[in-house]
């Protein structure tokens, strides 16, 4: 890795009786696209707010580009771009006024860094005189990313940029992030969508304030401890119930029109399972061994007791 961009060591944060973050430790390399994957309440927002110097941790140490989040918070603010989960631009300013405002407070101009935001901003430029509050969800997101980028930050922090965004806009947003990564920017991004993990160089799977695992998406999948069969049959709801009765099954989860059935590695037996279902009046359409998805891995980690 060509040097560390973000360093986090034994970070803990409590809100009253709630532990928002517990003993969080990780590093993000320069130029890396790093994902925090987890549902609401996992601690993703709290973590990003600490890293962007907007919130103080209870214990632990964090640095961004070598600067300490407590001592050097001013330096960090000037070299970071931050896109909060909640739309936080000025709703009664126009698209262009918002971008100009952010450029100005960071001591730069739109024209100086236009090349950085061009590909994103061009898509909303036809609406540059529209008030930000009147934009659609997808356009707001593009404007927010443009505003976070206009001062040419070294590190970009994005808090759930794709939440509530449709499948097509999500895809386009990740294409934009890949281009920013190619330009050398370090990106830390959080998301509740498990399928977005594959877009990241490395991911931290988070739940209830803890990091359950940190790895490349490939490695997370390789470490899945079970064997999986994908079963397709007519009525998925009935099928799930039937499969859960099958002896030796570890877990059964619906995945679209298929059911993913997990076994301990040694107990995988496609033909016996097929026979069992046929005997119970299920016309099995398809049954095949498959590789785990990140979502399979996430659910298995949720079910694994803490050491």
């Amino acid at each position: 890795m060509p040097g560390t961009s973000v360093h986090v060591q034994q970070l803990t944060k409590r809100f009253g009786a709630t532990t928002a973050l517990e003993d969080i430790t990780f590093d993000v390399g320069k130029g890396e696209l790093f994902g925090f994957i987890g549902p609401d309440g996992a601690g993703k927002t709290t973590l990003l707010r600490i890293l962007t110097t907007l919130l103080l941790a209870d214990t632990g140490r964090c640095t961004v580009e070598g600067f300490d989040v407590v001592k050097d918070y001013r330096r960090i603010r000037s070299i970071s771009g931050y896109m909060p989960g909640k739309f936080s631009l000025y709703q009664d300013l126009t698209v262009e006024e918002n971008l100009k405002f952010f450029a100005t407070i960071f001591g730069t101009t739109i024209s100086e860094n236009y090349h950085l935001v061009r590909e994103i901003y061009q898509q909303i430029e036809p609406f540059k005189n529209r008030k930000a509050g009147k934009l659609s969800g997808g356009m707001k997101q593009k404007l927010a990313l443009s505003c976070a980028m206009i001062h040419k930050p070294d590190v970009l922090f994005l808090d759930e940029p794709t939440t509530g965004v449709d499948a097509v806009s999500r895809l386009e947003f990740w294409e934009m992030l890949q281009r920013l990564k190619a330009a050398g920017i370090t990106i830390l991004v959080s998301t509740p969508y498990m399928d977005e993990a594959s877009q990241c160089d490395r991911v931290a799977l988070m739940q209830n304030g803890r990091i359950m695992t940190i790895s490349t998406p490939r490695e997370v999948i390789r470490n899945y401890p079970l064997s999986l069969l994908s079963v397709k049959a007519g009525d998925i709801y009935q099928l799930l119930g039937e499969l859960r009765k099958y002896p030796g099954v570890h877990s059964v989860y619906a995945f679209g029109q298929s059911a993913h059935v997990a076994f301990q590695k040694t107990k995988l037996d496609k033909d016996t399972l097929s026979g069992f279902l046929k005997k119970n009046n299920h016309a099995v359409v398809e049954i095949e061994p498959i590789e785990a998805t990140i979502e399979d891995c996430f659910m298995e980690l949720m079910n694994t007791p803490r050491e």
Binding site: P39, D40, T163, P192, A254, E295, M299, M302, N303
Partner: peptide
């Protein structure tokens, strides 16, 4: 939206 993957499936049940 934002719900963990196990709860999401229980919700569909």
């Amino acid at each position: 939206g934002g719900v963990d993957p196990i709860t999401r499936r229980q919700f569909w049940d």
